[in-house]
Design a protein around this nucleic acid. Structure first.
Lengths: 242, 242
DNA sequence: CCAAAAGTGTTCGTGTTACACCCATGA
DNA sequence: TCATGGGTGTAACACGAACACTTTTGG
């Protein structure tokens, strides 16, 4: 902070946000992507995002862009837990000009068809299974990989997993979130005890139960609790790199 | 990424880096600060940092600014492990113009008097005990608090603590790093076993030993090992918020 | 011989793992 | 009555917490 402060002393930087929004659908981790309509990378998939406006923080911009570019319900976007991932600032990450991008991650429940409704930008938003994502515009493949690694790690020591679930969920659904993100099987009795033994992770919905697979015993329903961290952590099994 | 790309369409953003560089001296956590010479906040303490140049990444800029603004040895700065903390982008965090800052943290060993040598900017750099830091320029107090929380958490599940130690160190020195950062006492036998049981955390220096407190049995010396993560983690005792 | 710091051993309790088993529901 | 998924019980084991004890140095 020693240099002078002439706003026009340097070639201007653009500051953008990029969002890696995940959901769990049909036993696979999905990410929300946008089909680009213009060069560069026209026709390629990209993470939703856009410019930070002069009077916005990056967090505010992220929320606004998410509402504008995707068809996610306003209410969901407003309440969403956005987490800063990191900032990407390599000089040539955008071929046109200097763009520094603040990346965020968010987790949402499996919505009916969240991206298909709204017009305009939202029409080009789709959920894609992360395993099927091949090429992405700019350095978005790197951002996606970093985001995926981060949420996998975060499930170990935070209560974020409930963010993937609907407002009321069964322990089986919660477990399948872990299994999907980690791509690993967990022992059901032990998972159950672990979750219930952590105060504030989930709260029982009194008397409520729901059938899940169509068959079997109806499962008790739970709501997210007030806790945010998991002590002691719920460690994933050995090799879950992929 | 849907808007057009006129570099001058918006009021320009300045992009800066800020650095929270920590060390452990005399049983207290210290942070490297700069005395500001100009308005705003002239005379106040601030984190070292500065503008990202047009052809630099934030990481490169952080390393350059650290070498320029502080008296830290070139070799140390070049080899230093810099970790991105997060990006601060509130519109009014700098009263003069829009400044988005990417914050980094780094850990260095207790150097003789690292900040006192070089001329110019470096002359205003000093180590201050974090407990004694009261007011900082801009939002740097928030950044410092976030950085402190982050390194405390990182010690739990990474091998970063060796970054606070000289090239060869005793287990007692390593333990005092944990105790200082966490502000908590640890059981020496258990700490010792835990560290030695983690493959690649530390490597014994064969035959080497050194006296630490002037008295007592000479302690074996260790070097940092190749491992970067700690599985299972070394959890800190309950209340270490302060 | 005492203080101080390093290093070893041992016990005890908690939490995780791995499994066997019972319960409720739809086909 | 069988398959399916929810839920309970329990023994074996690994790990961490706590603390007693030995070793090696300087004063």
């Amino acid at each position: 902070m020693t240099a002078g402060y002439d706003p026009y002393a340097f070639e201007p930087f653009a500051v953008t946000v990029d969002l890696a929004v995940f959901t769990v659908r049909a036993g696979a981790l999905h990410v929300l992507l946008i089909r680009r309509g213009q060069e560069p990378y026209a026709g390629a998939w990209a993470l939703p995002g856009g410019f930070v406006l002069p009077r916005e923080s990056a967090e505010t911009a992220a929320r606004r862009e998410l509402a504008e570019e995707t068809g996610l319900p306003e209410q969901l976007v407003a309440a969403l837990h956005l987490e800063q991932l990191r900032t990407y600032s390599e000089p040539d990450r955008d071929p046109r000009m200097r763009v520094v991008s603040v990346a965020f991650t968010a987790l949402v429940p499996d919505l009916p068809e969240p991206a298909a409704e709204g017009g305009g930008d939202a029409a080009h938003a789709r959920w894609l299974a992360v395993e099927d994502v091949s090429e992405l515009a700019f350095d978005h493949a790197v951002i996606l990989a970093d985001a995926r690694e981060r949420i996998g790690a975060k499930l170990e020591y935070t209560c974020l997993a409930t963010g993937f679930c609907p407002p009321e969920f069964t322990l089986g659904e919660l477990q399948s979130v872990y299994e999907t993100v980690w791509n690993a099987g967990l022992d059901r009795p032990n998972f159950r005890r672990k979750v219930l033994a952590t105060p504030g992770f989930v709260e029982a919905v009194p008397g409520a139960a729901r059938l899940t697979g169509g068959r079997g015993k109806p499962a008790a329903l739970y709501r997210p609790g007030p806790a945010t961290t998991l002590h002691p952590p719920l460690l994933r099994p050995e090799g879950t790199t992929r």
